[in-house]
Design a protein around this nucleic acid. Structure first.
Lengths: 343, 343
DNA sequence: GTTAGCACTCGAAGGTGACGAGTGCTAACA
DNA sequence: TGTTAGCACTCGTCACCTTCGAGTGCTAAC
């Protein structure tokens, strides 16, 4: 027995209905609501076949069928193949981002907010990340007589800063002079390389041991704890609206997963930079997410860095809508990060 | 009828038991578990009195009593008066903060994490905020040939930055020269004042209209959207562990409140900078929190700025433990923000 | 003032039966 | 040979009932 066109249409109807209602769907529903021109009995036979083929599950004998992960997979694949990702709410999105936002963090927070409110699922946005950034400029800014702010601008236009102590009094001009030397020495190096080169530099710019030591400390820390970048999560509470999570225990598990940021970032980033990824149920590789799906999309910032936006929802997710929204917002972010803030 | 010592002791026992179990407590429980040397019948009479006095509520006839908001208030007041805030986990906390952390955001995130994991409630940490900060230094750092990073260091050692476009090519030295002039002109002014003064400055440093305009834009934006500072929330999912939130609707309400960051910040900051505040149930002034309590503590950073740490939990919260933990962590934060990063 | 005793209340838990949605199978039909 | 009507069967849901027990208030005795 193989998949034929009619089976396909019936499966499609079952998936649509289940995504809509979240309730197991029976043969009568399909035969009535979606006019197939077939009686429920026929549908039943087909459904029985579909179950045998692994596309449908039956929670218990006297309930309808629900689509299996395999069914969603098929569904999503055809969705992605035909490429008809509708352009629903493009205008809303554009107008939201119209106001100029300076800080990357704000953009990311905004995006997460927006995705979750458009989809009604949980949204995650990760800031761009690529190979280790290279130092473009180092500048020391006086903070108090004993401390200075060290600002490192990377070639990708990202900024890292920290307050360090400088030994002894240093005025603005002295700090600037040191900044120039440091920039000259370190431009184009990665943080790791910069760390290695510090001893050499220490010889050249002597007499500031304290400061250089603190600087080294900062570089080293930053390099070793590879800044997972910024991450924004929006709409975690949305998930509780779905009957899948009316069980408090399940809900708590899900929420605490959302709270362990590092793990979450790994999961989302696990998609590996494909332009679109859909992981369904077990495919997520996370036991806690056995009945969730994760849809991610990539966006880029300058320097070819890849950021990720993602949506986490129940397996019966409105994939087509979600893909559409991620598509729009992904493009919007790419525009913002390559265009507006670029030279 | 008035409150006497015995009534007080019984009330105390009821509160203790209810905080522990979350189940209405009956007269027998008190008479047996807490050896009062009184029979359940006597306790019953006293409980009846306590109810009349407004310290106890009865969910329904055949259940035990639960403490009212008024009772918690009394309880907390005596707790605060006697000042015996135990110093439980001071060592754990100290060792956690031992590793040097550069970024304020990290410290705050950490603190929220720690408070929630120690208390098993939801924790909120707000970064220090005081009167409008004054500009200490402005520095422009080259990012690309067309853009620069403007870094503003305030007198409280906080840093704000944004990338702006500079018209035409500017090398590092030119930018430094401009930075010096700007710092000279604007040191000691608030952001608002700085905005007002920009036209005057524009005349002096002419020929850089584009840049000054962008700079103005940044100052203005920052001033108008008074940076609510950083806020970290930890352990929202902890709340779901309490039977009070086994109702999914309630849980969702609570969680979406936790997600509207601005509102949450207002609520937490509503305590008004007292060193300790406890708001019980209706006292929170937030309908959604009618059966929550909010405990906050203040910590300070240099310049007398006040930050807030807070715990949100069910009204039957382990107040004494929470107060103790907030006490410790508040001190720790104060030490960090006034000592270590100070001159 | 304290306590034992007792009738009473009421929620929680568990059991029962009607109901209905849905299935699989069979036999009839085109 | 595919489709459909019919029917017996399954099983979860819901409403209803009973039982159980925790807890109360009241009264009378100590």
């Amino acid at each position: 027995m193989a998949m034929d066109d009619r089976k396909m249409r019936i499966l499609q109807a079952i998936i649509d209905d289940y995504i809509l209602t979240g309730v197991p769907v029976g043969s009568r529903t399909i035969s009535k609501k979606y006019d197939m021109g077939l009686s429920s009995a026929t549908i039943r036979n087909e459904m029985s076949d579909l179950e045998e083929l692994g596309f449908l599950d039956q929670p218990h004998v006297s309930a309808g069928r629900i689509p299996s992960a395999k069914a969603y997979r098929l569904y999503v694949d055809t969705l992605l193949q035909t490429g008809r990702i509708p352009n629903d709410s493009a205008e809303t999105v554009r107008s939201h981002f119209a106001g100029r936002i300076h800080q990357m963090e704000d953009v990311i927070d905004h995006a997460a907010q927006m995705i979750s409110s458009l989809t009604h699922y949980t949204a995650v946005v990760l800031s761009p990340k690529g190979e280790q950034p290279r130092i473009h400029t180092i500048q020391l800014v006086p903070v108090s007589s004993e401390t200075a702010l060290v600002v490192i601008v990377t070639d990708q236009g990202m900024v890292r800063d920290s307050v360090i102590r400088v030994g002894g009094q240093m005025d603005s001009d002295t700090l600037y002079a040191i900044s120039r030397s440091l920039t000259e020495e370190l431009r184009g190096t990665t943080l790791t390389e910069a760390c290695e080169r510090m001893p050499v530099i220490a010889e050249r710019i002597s007499g500031n041991d304290r400061m250089l030591q603190e600087l080294y400390g900062f570089l080293n820390e930053d390099q070793n704890a590879p800044r997972r970048g910024h991450m924004a999560v929006g709409g975690t509470s949305n998930m509780l609206a779905y009957p899948e999570y009316s069980d408090v225990d399940k809900a708590r598990n899900f929420l605490s997963l959302m709270e362990t940021r590092d793990k979450l970032a790994d999961i989302i980033r696990g998609s590996g930079g494909m332009s679109f990824t859909v992981r369904i149920g077990p495919e997520t590789g996370v036991p806690e997410m056995a009945d969730c799906s994760i849809v991610t999309a990539a966006y880029s910032s300058r320097g070819g860095q890849q950021g990720t936006i993602g949506v986490i929802g129940p397996t019966r997710m409105q994939y087509s809508k979600v893909l559409s929204i991620l598509n729009i917002i992904g493009h919007q972010l790419t525009d913002m990060f390559t265009g507006e803030e670029n030279e």
